[in-house]
Write a protein that binds this DNA or RNA. Structure first.
Lengths: 259, 259
DNA sequence: GCTTGACCCTGACGCTGCGTCAACCCTCCA
DNA sequence: TGGAGGGTTGACGCAGCGTCAGGGTCAAGC
Protein backbone atom coordinates (compact mmCIF):
# COMPACT_ATOMS: atom_id res chain seq x y z
CA UNK A 1 0.00 0.00 0.00
CA UNK A 2 1.27 3.42 -1.01
CA UNK A 3 1.03 6.81 0.61
CA UNK A 4 -0.01 9.75 -1.51
CA UNK A 5 3.54 11.03 -1.84
CA UNK A 6 4.81 7.65 -2.97
CA UNK A 7 2.06 7.46 -5.54
CA UNK A 8 2.88 10.96 -6.70
CA UNK A 9 6.61 10.32 -6.91
CA UNK A 10 6.11 7.12 -8.84
CA UNK A 11 3.89 8.71 -11.44
CA UNK A 12 5.84 11.94 -11.61
CA UNK A 13 3.08 14.26 -10.46
CA UNK A 14 2.73 16.41 -7.37
CA UNK A 15 0.77 15.47 -4.28
CA UNK A 16 -1.42 18.48 -4.87
CA UNK A 17 -2.28 17.25 -8.34
CA UNK A 18 -3.36 13.88 -6.99
CA UNK A 19 -5.64 15.54 -4.47
CA UNK A 20 -6.98 17.73 -7.23
CA UNK A 21 -7.88 14.69 -9.29
CA UNK A 22 -9.74 13.33 -6.29
CA UNK A 23 -11.59 16.58 -5.87
CA UNK A 24 -12.86 16.63 -9.40
CA UNK A 25 -13.66 12.95 -9.27
CA UNK A 26 -11.15 11.94 -11.88
CA UNK A 27 -9.29 9.55 -9.61
CA UNK A 28 -11.44 7.69 -7.07
CA UNK A 29 -10.71 8.36 -3.41
CA UNK A 30 -8.93 5.34 -1.94
CA UNK A 31 -9.48 3.80 1.46
CA UNK A 32 -8.11 5.65 4.45
CA UNK A 33 -5.96 4.06 7.12
CA UNK A 34 -6.64 4.38 10.85
CA UNK A 35 -5.26 7.89 10.98
CA UNK A 36 -7.17 9.11 7.98
CA UNK A 37 -4.30 8.89 5.48
CA UNK A 38 -5.09 7.84 1.95
CA UNK A 39 -3.72 4.42 1.09
CA UNK A 40 -3.29 3.50 -2.55
CA UNK A 41 -3.17 0.15 -4.26
CA UNK A 42 -0.95 -0.56 -7.25
CA UNK A 43 -3.96 -0.10 -9.47
CA UNK A 44 -4.09 3.57 -8.57
CA UNK A 45 -0.62 3.95 -10.07
CA UNK A 46 -1.90 2.59 -13.33
CA UNK A 47 -4.97 4.83 -13.30
CA UNK A 48 -2.88 7.86 -12.55
CA UNK A 49 -0.37 7.14 -15.27
CA UNK A 50 -3.14 6.79 -17.81
CA UNK A 51 -4.58 10.09 -16.67
CA UNK A 52 -1.22 11.79 -17.04
CA UNK A 53 -0.63 10.40 -20.51
CA UNK A 54 -3.88 11.92 -21.68
CA UNK A 55 -3.35 15.15 -19.77
CA UNK A 56 0.13 15.53 -21.24
CA UNK A 57 -1.43 15.19 -24.66
CA UNK A 58 -3.49 18.24 -23.84
CA UNK A 59 -6.78 16.54 -23.06
CA UNK A 60 -8.77 18.61 -20.54
CA UNK A 61 -9.18 16.82 -17.23
CA UNK A 62 -12.93 17.13 -17.57
CA UNK A 63 -12.83 14.89 -20.64
CA UNK A 64 -10.34 12.34 -19.42
CA UNK A 65 -12.83 10.66 -17.13
CA UNK A 66 -15.29 10.08 -19.92
CA UNK A 67 -12.55 8.87 -22.23
CA UNK A 68 -11.34 6.25 -19.80
CA UNK A 69 -14.89 5.04 -19.25
CA UNK A 70 -15.69 4.86 -22.93
CA UNK A 71 -15.76 1.68 -24.96
CA UNK A 72 -12.86 0.75 -27.20
CA UNK A 73 -14.12 2.24 -30.46
CA UNK A 74 -15.17 5.54 -28.89
CA UNK A 75 -11.82 5.66 -27.18
CA UNK A 76 -9.98 4.97 -30.42
CA UNK A 77 -11.87 7.77 -32.15
CA UNK A 78 -10.99 10.16 -29.34
CA UNK A 79 -7.36 9.16 -29.56
CA UNK A 80 -7.36 9.89 -33.26
CA UNK A 81 -8.80 13.31 -32.57
CA UNK A 82 -6.14 13.98 -29.96
CA UNK A 83 -3.46 12.88 -32.36
CA UNK A 84 -4.66 15.34 -34.97
CA UNK A 85 -4.73 18.04 -32.38
CA UNK A 86 -1.19 17.23 -31.31
CA UNK A 87 -0.06 17.39 -34.91
CA UNK A 88 -1.62 20.82 -35.31
CA UNK A 89 -0.06 22.01 -32.11
CA UNK A 90 3.38 20.83 -33.18
CA UNK A 91 2.98 22.62 -36.50
CA UNK A 92 1.87 25.77 -34.70
CA UNK A 93 4.89 25.72 -32.45
CA UNK A 94 7.17 25.19 -35.38
CA UNK A 95 5.87 28.21 -37.25
CA UNK A 96 6.02 30.16 -34.03
CA UNK A 97 9.62 29.11 -33.75
CA UNK A 98 10.39 30.48 -37.18
CA UNK A 99 8.62 33.70 -36.36
CA UNK A 100 10.55 34.43 -33.23
CA UNK A 101 13.76 33.50 -34.99
CA UNK A 102 12.95 36.25 -37.47
CA UNK A 103 12.03 38.52 -34.64
CA UNK A 104 15.51 38.05 -33.26
CA UNK A 105 17.20 39.25 -36.41
CA UNK A 106 15.99 42.78 -35.97
CA UNK A 107 13.69 43.84 -38.75
CA UNK A 108 12.84 40.35 -39.92
CA UNK A 109 9.80 40.41 -37.72
CA UNK A 110 7.25 38.08 -39.15
CA UNK A 111 8.51 38.89 -42.58
CA UNK A 112 8.86 36.41 -45.38
CA UNK A 113 12.37 36.09 -46.80
CA UNK A 114 11.16 37.67 -50.03
CA UNK A 115 10.33 40.81 -48.10
CA UNK A 116 13.65 40.97 -46.34
CA UNK A 117 15.30 40.57 -49.71
CA UNK A 118 13.25 43.51 -50.88
CA UNK A 119 14.29 45.58 -47.89
CA UNK A 120 17.92 44.69 -48.44
CA UNK A 121 17.62 45.76 -52.06
CA UNK A 122 16.25 49.09 -50.88
CA UNK A 123 19.32 49.57 -48.75
CA UNK A 124 21.54 48.70 -51.70
CA UNK A 125 19.86 51.38 -53.73
CA UNK A 126 20.77 53.88 -51.07
CA UNK A 127 17.48 54.27 -49.28
CA UNK A 128 17.93 55.64 -45.78
CA UNK A 129 17.38 53.55 -42.70
CA UNK A 130 14.37 55.58 -41.64
CA UNK A 131 12.59 55.02 -44.91
CA UNK A 132 13.52 51.36 -44.90
CA UNK A 133 12.14 51.12 -41.37
CA UNK A 134 8.92 52.68 -42.61
CA UNK A 135 8.72 50.16 -45.42
CA UNK A 136 9.38 47.38 -42.96
CA UNK A 137 6.54 48.47 -40.70
CA UNK A 138 4.27 48.66 -43.71
CA UNK A 139 5.11 45.18 -44.80
CA UNK A 140 4.60 43.90 -41.33
CA UNK A 141 1.07 45.20 -41.54
CA UNK A 142 0.63 43.75 -45.00
CA UNK A 143 1.95 40.40 -43.86
CA UNK A 144 -0.45 40.42 -40.97
CA UNK A 145 -3.34 40.96 -43.34
CA UNK A 146 -2.37 38.78 -46.27
CA UNK A 147 0.30 36.40 -45.09
CA UNK A 148 0.25 34.44 -48.34
CA UNK A 149 -0.32 37.10 -50.94
CA UNK A 150 2.63 39.15 -49.82
CA UNK A 151 5.07 36.55 -51.09
CA UNK A 152 3.37 36.57 -54.46
CA UNK A 153 3.66 40.32 -54.77
CA UNK A 154 7.30 40.62 -53.91
CA UNK A 155 8.91 39.50 -57.20
CA UNK A 156 7.29 42.31 -59.16
CA UNK A 157 8.01 44.70 -56.32
CA UNK A 158 11.67 43.78 -56.46
CA UNK A 159 11.69 44.02 -60.25
CA UNK A 160 10.30 47.54 -60.03
CA UNK A 161 13.38 48.61 -58.16
CA UNK A 162 15.24 48.55 -61.45
CA UNK A 163 13.19 51.49 -62.64
CA UNK A 164 15.43 54.60 -62.46
CA UNK A 165 12.42 56.79 -61.73
CA UNK A 166 11.55 54.74 -58.67
CA UNK A 167 15.13 54.74 -57.49
CA UNK A 168 15.22 58.50 -57.83
CA UNK A 169 11.96 58.78 -55.90
CA UNK A 170 13.26 56.73 -53.03
CA UNK A 171 16.48 58.72 -52.89
CA UNK A 172 14.61 61.98 -52.71
CA UNK A 173 12.37 60.66 -49.97
CA UNK A 174 15.42 59.44 -48.07
CA UNK A 175 17.01 62.86 -48.28
CA UNK A 176 13.87 64.67 -47.21
CA UNK A 177 13.05 62.52 -44.26
CA UNK A 178 16.63 62.30 -43.11
CA UNK A 179 16.95 66.07 -42.86
CA UNK A 180 15.25 68.16 -40.21
CA UNK A 181 14.35 71.01 -42.52
CA UNK A 182 11.21 71.00 -44.62
CA UNK A 183 12.53 71.08 -48.14
CA UNK A 184 9.26 71.54 -49.92
CA UNK A 185 10.75 71.65 -53.38
CA UNK A 186 12.05 68.12 -52.96
CA UNK A 187 8.66 66.94 -51.81
CA UNK A 188 7.07 68.43 -54.87
CA UNK A 189 9.61 66.65 -57.02
CA UNK A 190 8.82 63.37 -55.26
CA UNK A 191 5.10 63.92 -55.77
CA UNK A 192 5.66 64.52 -59.48
CA UNK A 193 7.58 61.29 -59.88
CA UNK A 194 5.04 59.37 -57.86
CA UNK A 195 2.17 60.73 -59.90
CA UNK A 196 4.00 59.87 -63.09
CA UNK A 197 4.61 56.32 -61.93
CA UNK A 198 1.00 56.01 -60.89
CA UNK A 199 -0.14 57.18 -64.29
CA UNK A 200 2.00 54.59 -65.99
CA UNK A 201 0.72 51.83 -63.74
CA UNK A 202 -2.82 52.97 -64.23
CA UNK A 203 -2.55 53.06 -68.01
CA UNK A 204 -0.90 49.67 -68.27
CA UNK A 205 -3.73 48.29 -66.17
CA UNK A 206 -1.20 47.09 -63.70
CA UNK A 207 -3.54 47.49 -60.81
CA UNK A 208 -4.91 44.02 -60.17
CA UNK A 209 -5.07 43.78 -56.44
CA UNK A 210 -8.14 41.57 -56.70
CA UNK A 211 -10.06 41.06 -53.50
CA UNK A 212 -7.42 43.05 -51.75
CA UNK A 213 -8.85 46.19 -53.27
CA UNK A 214 -12.04 45.61 -51.32
CA UNK A 215 -10.38 46.18 -48.03
CA UNK A 216 -9.43 49.80 -47.50
CA UNK A 217 -8.47 49.53 -43.86
CA UNK A 218 -4.92 48.28 -44.31
CA UNK A 219 -4.04 50.97 -46.83
CA UNK A 220 -5.55 53.77 -44.84
CA UNK A 221 -3.66 52.39 -41.93
CA UNK A 222 -0.40 52.39 -43.82
CA UNK A 223 -0.84 56.00 -44.76
CA UNK A 224 -1.66 56.89 -41.18
CA UNK A 225 1.44 55.04 -40.05
CA UNK A 226 3.59 57.01 -42.45
CA UNK A 227 2.13 60.30 -41.27
CA UNK A 228 2.82 59.31 -37.71
CA UNK A 229 6.41 58.44 -38.49
CA UNK A 230 6.90 61.83 -40.11
CA UNK A 231 4.28 64.58 -40.35
CA UNK A 232 5.79 65.80 -43.62
CA UNK A 233 4.05 62.84 -45.24
CA UNK A 234 0.85 64.81 -44.73
CA UNK A 235 2.16 67.42 -47.13
CA UNK A 236 3.05 64.71 -49.61
CA UNK A 237 -0.50 63.36 -49.45
CA UNK A 238 -1.76 66.84 -50.14
CA UNK A 239 0.51 67.19 -53.14
CA UNK A 240 -0.71 63.88 -54.50
CA UNK A 241 -4.30 64.93 -54.10
CA UNK A 242 -3.52 68.06 -56.14
CA UNK A 243 -2.27 65.69 -58.83
CA UNK A 244 -5.46 63.63 -58.80
CA UNK A 245 -4.41 60.76 -56.57
CA UNK A 246 -5.66 59.68 -53.17
CA UNK A 247 -3.56 57.78 -50.73
CA UNK A 248 0.00 56.66 -50.80
CA UNK A 249 0.28 52.98 -49.97
CA UNK A 250 -2.31 52.41 -52.65
CA UNK A 251 -3.01 55.24 -55.05
CA UNK A 252 -6.53 55.79 -56.22
CA UNK A 253 -7.79 58.12 -58.89
CA UNK A 254 -9.80 60.97 -57.50
CA UNK A 255 -12.95 61.93 -59.30
CA UNK A 256 -11.87 64.95 -61.30
CA UNK A 257 -11.47 66.42 -64.79
CA UNK A 258 -10.12 63.17 -66.22
CA UNK A 259 -12.71 60.83 -64.72
CA UNK B 1 -7.23 56.17 -36.43
CA UNK B 2 -8.61 52.81 -35.44
CA UNK B 3 -11.26 51.73 -33.02
CA UNK B 4 -10.50 48.90 -30.66
CA UNK B 5 -12.45 46.37 -32.69
CA UNK B 6 -10.63 47.35 -35.87
CA UNK B 7 -7.31 46.96 -34.14
CA UNK B 8 -8.39 43.61 -32.75
CA UNK B 9 -9.73 42.37 -36.06
CA UNK B 10 -6.60 43.47 -37.85
CA UNK B 11 -4.26 41.62 -35.53
CA UNK B 12 -6.49 38.62 -35.07
CA UNK B 13 -7.07 38.97 -31.35
CA UNK B 14 -10.22 39.67 -29.38
CA UNK B 15 -11.24 43.07 -28.09
CA UNK B 16 -11.13 41.65 -24.61
CA UNK B 17 -7.52 40.61 -25.07
CA UNK B 18 -6.54 44.13 -26.15
CA UNK B 19 -8.19 45.61 -23.08
CA UNK B 20 -6.44 43.01 -20.99
CA UNK B 21 -3.09 44.06 -22.38
CA UNK B 22 -3.93 47.63 -21.42
CA UNK B 23 -4.87 46.55 -17.93
CA UNK B 24 -1.57 44.84 -17.29
CA UNK B 25 0.34 47.66 -18.93
CA UNK B 26 1.64 45.61 -21.79
CA UNK B 27 0.10 47.79 -24.46
CA UNK B 28 -0.03 51.51 -23.64
CA UNK B 29 -3.46 53.08 -23.37
CA UNK B 30 -4.09 55.23 -26.44
CA UNK B 31 -5.74 58.62 -26.56
CA UNK B 32 -9.49 58.78 -26.19
CA UNK B 33 -11.78 60.58 -28.58
CA UNK B 34 -14.47 63.02 -27.49
CA UNK B 35 -16.82 60.25 -26.43
CA UNK B 36 -14.21 58.36 -24.46
CA UNK B 37 -13.52 55.71 -27.08
CA UNK B 38 -9.99 54.46 -27.47
CA UNK B 39 -8.39 55.57 -30.71
CA UNK B 40 -5.38 53.67 -31.97
CA UNK B 41 -2.53 54.73 -34.17
CA UNK B 42 -0.96 52.43 -36.71
CA UNK B 43 1.99 51.91 -34.43
CA UNK B 44 -0.28 50.10 -32.03
CA UNK B 45 -0.91 47.47 -34.70
CA UNK B 46 2.79 46.74 -34.97
CA UNK B 47 3.18 46.61 -31.20
CA UNK B 48 0.25 44.28 -30.88
CA UNK B 49 1.53 41.95 -33.58
CA UNK B 50 4.89 41.72 -31.89
CA UNK B 51 3.19 40.96 -28.60
CA UNK B 52 1.19 38.20 -30.21
CA UNK B 53 4.21 36.61 -31.83
CA UNK B 54 5.90 36.33 -28.48
CA UNK B 55 2.73 35.24 -26.71
CA UNK B 56 2.14 32.55 -29.33
CA UNK B 57 5.62 31.29 -28.63
CA UNK B 58 4.53 30.73 -25.06
CA UNK B 59 6.19 33.74 -23.47
CA UNK B 60 4.23 34.84 -20.40
CA UNK B 61 2.65 38.26 -20.86
CA UNK B 62 4.49 39.47 -17.78
CA UNK B 63 7.80 38.93 -19.55
CA UNK B 64 6.89 40.27 -22.95
CA UNK B 65 7.00 43.86 -21.81
CA UNK B 66 10.51 43.55 -20.49
CA UNK B 67 11.61 41.71 -23.60
CA UNK B 68 10.40 44.40 -25.94
CA UNK B 69 12.08 47.06 -23.85
CA UNK B 70 15.36 45.21 -23.63
CA UNK B 71 18.42 46.00 -25.68
CA UNK B 72 19.29 43.90 -28.69
CA UNK B 73 21.68 41.45 -27.05
CA UNK B 74 19.43 40.80 -24.06
CA UNK B 75 16.58 40.32 -26.46
CA UNK B 76 18.57 37.92 -28.57
CA UNK B 77 19.46 35.87 -25.50
CA UNK B 78 15.83 35.74 -24.48
CA UNK B 79 14.84 34.64 -27.95
CA UNK B 80 17.38 31.85 -27.81
CA UNK B 81 15.92 30.75 -24.52
CA UNK B 82 12.43 30.77 -25.98
CA UNK B 83 13.61 28.80 -28.96
CA UNK B 84 15.06 26.12 -26.72
CA UNK B 85 11.84 26.03 -24.80
CA UNK B 86 9.85 25.65 -28.00
CA UNK B 87 12.11 22.84 -29.10
CA UNK B 88 11.57 21.06 -25.80
CA UNK B 89 7.87 21.54 -26.05
CA UNK B 90 7.77 20.12 -29.56
CA UNK B 91 9.77 17.10 -28.41
CA UNK B 92 7.42 16.66 -25.48
CA UNK B 93 4.38 16.68 -27.71
CA UNK B 94 5.97 14.20 -30.03
CA UNK B 95 6.65 11.69 -27.27
CA UNK B 96 3.19 12.34 -25.96
CA UNK B 97 1.90 11.46 -29.37
CA UNK B 98 3.65 8.11 -29.29
CA UNK B 99 2.36 7.42 -25.83
CA UNK B 100 -1.26 7.93 -26.63
CA UNK B 101 -0.84 5.78 -29.71
CA UNK B 102 0.27 2.98 -27.41
CA UNK B 103 -2.58 3.72 -25.11
CA UNK B 104 -4.94 3.10 -27.98
CA UNK B 105 -3.32 -0.14 -29.05
CA UNK B 106 -2.89 -3.15 -26.81
CA UNK B 107 -5.12 -3.50 -23.84
CA UNK B 108 -4.80 0.07 -22.69
CA UNK B 109 -2.06 -0.33 -20.14
CA UNK B 110 -3.78 -3.04 -18.20
CA UNK B 111 -1.89 -6.27 -18.32
CA UNK B 112 -0.58 -7.60 -21.57
CA UNK B 113 -1.69 -11.16 -22.39
CA UNK B 114 1.88 -12.36 -21.96
CA UNK B 115 1.72 -11.33 -18.33
CA UNK B 116 -1.56 -13.06 -17.61
CA UNK B 117 -0.11 -16.18 -19.21
CA UNK B 118 2.80 -15.91 -16.85
CA UNK B 119 0.51 -15.55 -13.84
CA UNK B 120 -1.52 -18.57 -14.93
CA UNK B 121 1.67 -20.60 -15.20
CA UNK B 122 2.53 -19.62 -11.64
CA UNK B 123 -0.80 -20.97 -10.45
CA UNK B 124 -0.20 -24.20 -12.38
CA UNK B 125 3.07 -24.64 -10.58
CA UNK B 126 1.24 -24.44 -7.29
CA UNK B 127 2.00 -20.88 -6.24
CA UNK B 128 -0.53 -19.58 -3.71
CA UNK B 129 -3.07 -16.92 -4.61
CA UNK B 130 -1.49 -14.39 -2.27
CA UNK B 131 1.86 -14.67 -3.93
CA UNK B 132 0.30 -14.61 -7.39
CA UNK B 133 -1.59 -11.45 -6.41
CA UNK B 134 1.69 -9.90 -5.34
CA UNK B 135 3.25 -10.80 -8.66
CA UNK B 136 0.27 -9.35 -10.49
CA UNK B 137 0.47 -6.03 -8.69
CA UNK B 138 4.17 -5.91 -9.40
CA UNK B 139 3.64 -6.43 -13.08
CA UNK B 140 0.99 -3.77 -13.19
CA UNK B 141 3.58 -1.35 -11.89
CA UNK B 142 6.20 -2.62 -14.29
CA UNK B 143 3.80 -2.27 -17.19
CA UNK B 144 3.02 1.26 -16.14
CA UNK B 145 6.69 2.12 -16.14
CA UNK B 146 7.89 0.24 -19.19
CA UNK B 147 4.88 -0.62 -21.32
CA UNK B 148 7.00 -2.02 -24.15
CA UNK B 149 9.83 -3.73 -22.36
CA UNK B 150 7.53 -5.88 -20.25
CA UNK B 151 6.29 -7.82 -23.23
CA UNK B 152 9.86 -8.45 -24.30
CA UNK B 153 10.79 -9.75 -20.90
CA UNK B 154 7.93 -12.20 -20.46
CA UNK B 155 9.13 -15.05 -22.71
CA UNK B 156 12.31 -15.56 -20.73
CA UNK B 157 10.37 -15.11 -17.51
CA UNK B 158 8.00 -17.88 -18.53
CA UNK B 159 10.90 -20.07 -19.63
CA UNK B 160 12.52 -19.67 -16.23
CA UNK B 161 9.53 -21.32 -14.63
CA UNK B 162 10.87 -24.64 -15.91
CA UNK B 163 13.79 -24.37 -13.53
CA UNK B 164 13.16 -26.78 -10.60
CA UNK B 165 15.01 -24.47 -8.25
CA UNK B 166 12.71 -21.60 -9.04
CA UNK B 167 9.64 -23.79 -8.67
CA UNK B 168 10.87 -24.92 -5.29
CA UNK B 169 11.49 -21.30 -4.27
CA UNK B 170 7.98 -20.22 -5.19
CA UNK B 171 6.46 -23.17 -3.34
CA UNK B 172 8.37 -22.37 -0.17
CA UNK B 173 7.33 -18.73 -0.38
CA UNK B 174 3.74 -19.78 -0.87
CA UNK B 175 3.84 -21.96 2.18
CA UNK B 176 5.47 -19.33 4.34
CA UNK B 177 3.19 -16.48 3.40
CA UNK B 178 0.08 -18.61 3.53
CA UNK B 179 0.71 -19.61 7.11
CA UNK B 180 0.36 -17.28 10.07
CA UNK B 181 3.39 -18.56 11.94
CA UNK B 182 6.87 -17.28 11.24
CA UNK B 183 8.74 -20.33 10.04
CA UNK B 184 12.19 -18.85 9.90
CA UNK B 185 13.91 -22.01 8.70
CA UNK B 186 11.81 -21.97 5.54
CA UNK B 187 12.68 -18.35 4.91
CA UNK B 188 16.37 -19.16 5.25
CA UNK B 189 15.93 -21.95 2.74
CA UNK B 190 14.19 -19.57 0.36
CA UNK B 191 16.98 -17.05 0.75
CA UNK B 192 19.57 -19.70 -0.02
CA UNK B 193 17.82 -20.68 -3.23
CA UNK B 194 17.32 -17.08 -4.24
CA UNK B 195 20.97 -16.27 -3.61
CA UNK B 196 22.00 -19.30 -5.60
CA UNK B 197 19.80 -18.28 -8.52
CA UNK B 198 21.13 -14.76 -8.33
CA UNK B 199 24.70 -16.03 -8.39
CA UNK B 200 23.98 -18.07 -11.49
CA UNK B 201 22.34 -15.14 -13.23
CA UNK B 202 25.18 -12.88 -12.20
CA UNK B 203 27.86 -15.25 -13.45
CA UNK B 204 26.18 -15.90 -16.77
CA UNK B 205 25.99 -12.14 -17.20
CA UNK B 206 22.27 -12.44 -17.53
CA UNK B 207 21.72 -9.06 -16.03
CA UNK B 208 21.16 -6.76 -18.99
CA UNK B 209 18.41 -4.48 -17.89
CA UNK B 210 19.95 -1.68 -19.92
CA UNK B 211 18.60 1.75 -19.18
CA UNK B 212 16.07 0.19 -16.86
CA UNK B 213 18.85 -0.36 -14.33
CA UNK B 214 19.18 3.40 -13.97
CA UNK B 215 15.79 3.79 -12.39
CA UNK B 216 15.73 2.49 -8.83
CA UNK B 217 12.37 3.83 -7.79
CA UNK B 218 10.15 1.13 -9.31
CA UNK B 219 12.17 -1.66 -7.76
CA UNK B 220 12.27 -0.01 -4.37
CA UNK B 221 8.56 0.43 -4.67
CA UNK B 222 8.03 -3.20 -5.55
CA UNK B 223 10.03 -4.24 -2.51
CA UNK B 224 8.13 -1.83 -0.31
CA UNK B 225 4.88 -3.13 -1.69
CA UNK B 226 5.92 -6.70 -0.86
CA UNK B 227 6.93 -5.75 2.66
CA UNK B 228 3.60 -4.07 3.19
CA UNK B 229 1.74 -7.07 1.89
CA UNK B 230 3.60 -9.20 4.41
CA UNK B 231 6.13 -7.91 6.94
CA UNK B 232 8.01 -11.20 6.83
CA UNK B 233 9.44 -10.03 3.55
CA UNK B 234 11.54 -7.70 5.63
CA UNK B 235 13.22 -10.69 7.20
CA UNK B 236 13.80 -12.14 3.76
CA UNK B 237 15.44 -8.91 2.65
CA UNK B 238 17.69 -9.13 5.69
CA UNK B 239 18.67 -12.70 4.87
CA UNK B 240 19.50 -11.70 1.32
CA UNK B 241 21.66 -8.87 2.55
CA UNK B 242 23.58 -11.38 4.69
CA UNK B 243 24.21 -13.30 1.48
CA UNK B 244 25.53 -10.26 -0.30
CA UNK B 245 22.43 -9.16 -2.20
CA UNK B 246 20.34 -6.05 -1.94
CA UNK B 247 16.70 -5.87 -2.90
CA UNK B 248 14.27 -8.46 -4.09
CA UNK B 249 12.49 -7.34 -7.21
CA UNK B 250 15.93 -6.62 -8.58
CA UNK B 251 18.93 -8.11 -6.82
CA UNK B 252 22.09 -6.10 -6.63
CA UNK B 253 25.52 -7.13 -5.39
CA UNK B 254 26.46 -5.43 -2.16
CA UNK B 255 30.00 -4.24 -1.74
CA UNK B 256 31.64 -7.00 0.29
CA UNK B 257 34.38 -9.65 0.41
CA UNK B 258 33.81 -10.73 -3.19
CA UNK B 259 33.74 -7.28 -4.70
C1' DG C 1 8.56 10.49 27.77
C1' DC C 2 9.82 14.30 24.73
C1' DT C 3 11.36 16.49 20.81
C1' DT C 4 12.19 16.73 15.97
C1' DG C 5 11.31 16.28 11.28
C1' DA C 6 8.85 14.32 7.75
C1' DC C 7 4.60 13.18 6.44
C1' DC C 8 -0.61 13.48 6.24
C1' DC C 9 -5.18 16.13 6.43
C1' DT C 10 -8.69 19.98 5.02
C1' DG C 11 -9.80 24.51 3.62
C1' DA C 12 -8.97 28.58 1.11
C1' DC C 13 -6.81 32.00 -1.66
C1' DG C 14 -3.59 33.04 -5.77
C1' DC C 15 -2.12 32.76 -10.48
C1' DT C 16 -2.65 33.32 -16.13
C1' DG C 17 -5.07 34.86 -19.93
C1' DC C 18 -8.54 35.88 -21.05
C1' DG C 19 -14.43 34.64 -21.83
C1' DT C 20 -18.59 36.28 -20.52
C1' DC C 21 -22.11 38.61 -18.37
C1' DA C 22 -24.18 43.20 -16.69
C1' DA C 23 -25.38 47.84 -17.00
C1' DC C 24 -24.66 51.73 -19.21
C1' DC C 25 -23.23 55.37 -22.99
C1' DC C 26 -22.48 56.96 -28.32
C1' DT C 27 -23.57 57.29 -33.00
C1' DC C 28 -25.66 56.48 -37.10
C1' DC C 29 -29.40 55.34 -40.09
C1' DA C 30 -34.14 54.68 -41.36
C1' DT D 1 -37.56 58.21 -32.47
C1' DG D 2 -35.94 54.11 -31.85
C1' DG D 3 -33.14 50.28 -32.83
C1' DA D 4 -28.78 48.29 -34.27
C1' DG D 5 -24.20 48.11 -33.54
C1' DG D 6 -20.50 50.09 -31.83
C1' DG D 7 -18.03 51.65 -27.30
C1' DT D 8 -17.14 51.97 -21.79
C1' DT D 9 -16.10 50.07 -16.93
C1' DG D 10 -16.59 46.60 -13.45
C1' DA D 11 -16.89 41.99 -11.82
C1' DC D 12 -17.16 37.12 -11.74
C1' DG D 13 -15.80 32.48 -13.92
C1' DC D 14 -12.63 28.97 -15.78
C1' DA D 15 -8.51 25.29 -15.68
C1' DG D 16 -5.00 23.19 -13.24
C1' DC D 17 -2.95 23.32 -10.06
C1' DG D 18 0.87 26.19 -6.39
C1' DT D 19 1.06 27.70 -2.03
C1' DC D 20 0.06 29.07 2.41
C1' DA D 21 -2.37 28.25 7.09
C1' DG D 22 -3.50 25.49 10.81
C1' DG D 23 -4.01 21.49 12.24
C1' DG D 24 -2.87 15.83 13.28
C1' DT D 25 0.40 11.46 12.86
C1' DC D 26 4.42 8.61 12.87
C1' DA D 27 9.17 6.93 13.42
C1' DA D 28 13.54 7.95 15.32
C1' DG D 29 16.70 9.54 18.56
C1' DC D 30 17.74 11.27 23.11
Amino acid sequence: MLTISQLAAYTGVTVRAVRHYHQIGLLPEPERDSSGYRRYSAGAVVSLIRIRILANAGVPLSQIGQMLDADASTFAAAVEEIDRHLGDEIARLETSRKQIAQLASGDRLALAPEVTTYLDRLRDIGVSERVVAGERDSWILMSARWPDRVREWMPSKIAQLDDPQLIRLYRILSEVFESDTSDDARLVEAADILASLADQAYRSGEIDLGEVAQDDLPFDLLDALAVEADPRVKRLLGLMRERGWDGLARLERLAGPST
